[in-house]
Amino acid sequence: MSTSKLHRQLLEKIEKGLQDLLLPDDPQTLYQPFRYALDVGGKRIRPLLTCLACGICGGDTEDALPAALAVEILHNFTLVHDDIMDSAETRRGEPSVYKKWNENIAILSGDVMFADAYRQLAAYGQNDAFTKQEYTALHDVFSEAVITVCEGQALDMEFVNRTSVSHNEYIRMIAGKTAALLSASLEMGAIAAHASPQMREELAELGHEMGIAFQIQDDLLDAVADPEKFGKKPGGDIYEGKKTYLTILALERADEDQKRFIQSVLDAQDPTQEEVEKVLSLMGSLNVLDDVAAETDQHYQKALNLLQSFDSSEYQQELKNLLIFLRNRDH
């Protein structure tokens, strides 16, 4: 995705804010992993959304920066703890915090990141430009997102040991793990702009639709994307036995023989390429691939429709460009 001047300016503002965090030098085992987790990088999508939402609502993006930093620190905290739970040795091509140090250090550093994320919001309580109600609203939106993200993670963990998961349950899980923080990022940006309740609600819904679309699209790309662009062979999730939106829908639609075969491939320690290709073929014949593509498109279109209710601005156009880029991505 080519970046605009506005995109670059906002990213520079976010990066500077992260670099300017007043983190102590000592204890080193607490704060070095904190800094490392932030410096490993990332696209900074969530803080970018916070700044864009503020601009869309006519606010000053400087006012959105504490909220933007809060959501980015929180996001990285979740990654530090997720890597422990998943025993993931790398993150963004570098050793994960728990691998570079150890599990106990990663847990404690994650804890202080969580606390520091909340500390960023104190700036609004100390700024007379923000009412007590707005300060409270920022905390409420942020706290609700934290709880929902944890619920989504818990559901994801529960699904591993369950024999069946419905597509509605899966949507609820990704609404927590993926969509909740995107939704909160946009709504907090609106609050930072002193936006109306209706604007807040529309941007929160936009983030929800965006998050759902992105995650089920990711599941779809695993099955249909060009392996050279996507980075792994088609059906990678099937080889790993993962429950995805595609496998869940396929199992719901399959007849008994098809269902037994799909489940046997998902349960296999080392399924063959032929078996995985047959599952992908069944997904096609059961209209799973086409229907998930259409559903993804519907969620992105809902997000774009919500965006159209806001006045035209460079911020609105930037968010529109991002949604269109995500909608058309092929890896």
Rank of each mutant, 00 (worst) to 15 (best):
D222Q: 11
D222E: 08
A223W: 13
A223K: 09
V224A: 09
V224R: 09
V224Y: 14
A225L: 06
A225Q: 09
A225F: 12
A225G: 07
D226K: 10
D226P: 07
D226G: 12
D226L: 08
P227R: 02
P227L: 10
P227M: 07
E228V: 13
E228P: 08
E228R: 10
E228M: 09
K229H: 07
K229Q: 12
F230A: 10
F230C: 05
F230V: 06
F230Q: 11
G231K: 04
K232G: 12
K232Y: 15
K232A: 15
K232R: 15
K233Q: 11
P234V: 14
P234I: 11
P234R: 15
G235C: 00
G235A: 01
G235Y: 00
G235F: 01
G236W: 04
I238R: 02
I238L: 10
Y239D: 03
Y239S: 04
Y239F: 12
E240R: 13
E240V: 06
G241R: 00
G241W: 00
G241L: 01
K242C: 07
K242D: 05
K242Q: 05
K243D: 06
K243R: 15
K243I: 06
K243S: 09
K243F: 05
K243Y: 06
Y245T: 01
Y245H: 00
L246W: 02
L246G: 02
T247F: 12
T247Y: 11
T247Q: 12
T247D: 12
I248C: 03
I248L: 11
I248V: 14
L249N: 15
L249H: 06
L249W: 12
L249S: 15
L249D: 03
A250E: 00
E252K: 11
E252F: 11
E252W: 09
R253F: 08
A254E: 12
A254W: 10
A254V: 09
